[in-house]
Design a protein around this nucleic acid. Sequence first.
DNA 1: TGTAATCTTTACCAATTGATCAAATTTTTC
DNA 2: GAAAAATTTGATCAATTGGTAAAGATTACA
Lengths: 210, 210
Amino acid sequence: MAKPRAAETRKRTRIQQEKEDRILDAALDVFSVHGFRGSTIDQIAKAAGMSKPNLLYYFRTKEAIHRLLIGRLLDTWLDPLREMSADGDPLSEICSYIRRKLEMARDYPREGRLFTNEILRGAPHIQEEMSDLKSLVDEKAKIMRGWMKDGRLAKCDPHHLIFSIWATTQHYADFDVQVRAVLGPAKSGEGRFEDAARYLEKLFLDGLKP
Amino acid sequence: MAKPRAAETRKRTRIQQEKEDRILDAALDVFSVHGFRGSTIDQIAKAAGMSKPNLLYYFRTKEAIHRLLIGRLLDTWLDPLREMSADGDPLSEICSYIRRKLEMARDYPREGRLFTNEILRGAPHIQEEMSDLKSLVDEKAKIMRGWMKDGRLAKCDPHHLIFSIWATTQHYADFDVQVRAVLGPAKSGEGRFEDAARYLEKLFLDGLKP
DNA sequence: TGTAATCTTTACCAATTGATCAAATTTTTC
DNA sequence: GAAAAATTTGATCAATTGGTAAAGATTACA
């Protein structure tokens, strides 16, 4: 055959596997920093070590790459929240949730920035998922309200509680350069995540009153 | 004269005043959503209700507009932190700071997103300001450590304390569409900022223990 | 009111960018 | 080891984009 597109090929070959992975990795690098419109196929191709037409042999369009990355991301992004269980101890459940989100900010900062880029742009590609998100959050908020009624959690607005967890943990991915600039070279090692975890646990449990 | 650039004109005329303001406002709209590379001069010109060459009569380049906006932003962005005084009551000082930052997120969300866009991109245009930022934060961290030593503030890492205030307040500007999606139409009015303020004060003062 | 200065428009340019195609090359399969 | 399938390359395209040149329209001011 003259020119089969990679995706139209009978089976996924070894080369396809490899190259597609390399492209997605490179694209995540580029998209997470420059956003969709700010990224070029050339940039991604170069980062993946191949020519532009070669890249386009594996993915028809720039958007196809982006869509795939966003899809993958959304798949796992909410897992930590899903894991929060009504049966556990309220404060431990919340602390575990914070810890898991912070680990994600540490281990997958590019995915975090990709997500933030998308939200900043007004979430044009993920309207549907936003409504799934609402259902999930409402469900967990209900659990929290139950805990509050039982006197096992301080009374407060559960939606804003969840926002504050998202915000404080995601901050270490999105504002990484600012965090490093402020902490200075000495404290910018991986240890900053342990400091953050310690601080956040204290904040969420006891607040700042002496 | 054939074609004087607006900026090179003897005095700022009424029209210059007006048009430049309109351009900057439109550019803030566009840049804050699409980032620098993702925004086009045409887009900004259209949003400002003028032709592209007309816009370029007032600002030589796209970058000139962006630089000016970023400069303005940085000028006022840190004012609330600067106001935090060692003489005040620690907890009130911190609560005021949170309140002021939240007001900025409410009243200047576009500026907030412009800043976040810049940081996400690795802060390429504001390296110098990042180092000024460190000095200011270090100074305030020192004040906080003093408060802790005196037993007037819970012992914790003051840098991460500041991060958590930035994160929780800025969240309402950057993730606005997500916040609205989660809260639903009923609770997405301006009242959400009062709910946030109430929640955050409670969190930072007392934490979540019942 | 006339004219010099300022402002706006129309037409245009060169570079970049997303994407295609056919030919050349490499890999897999039998 | 040859045929078939898959991969890579180089040339190319049309649209977009940042920016310019110059002529025409408007405004301010004597």
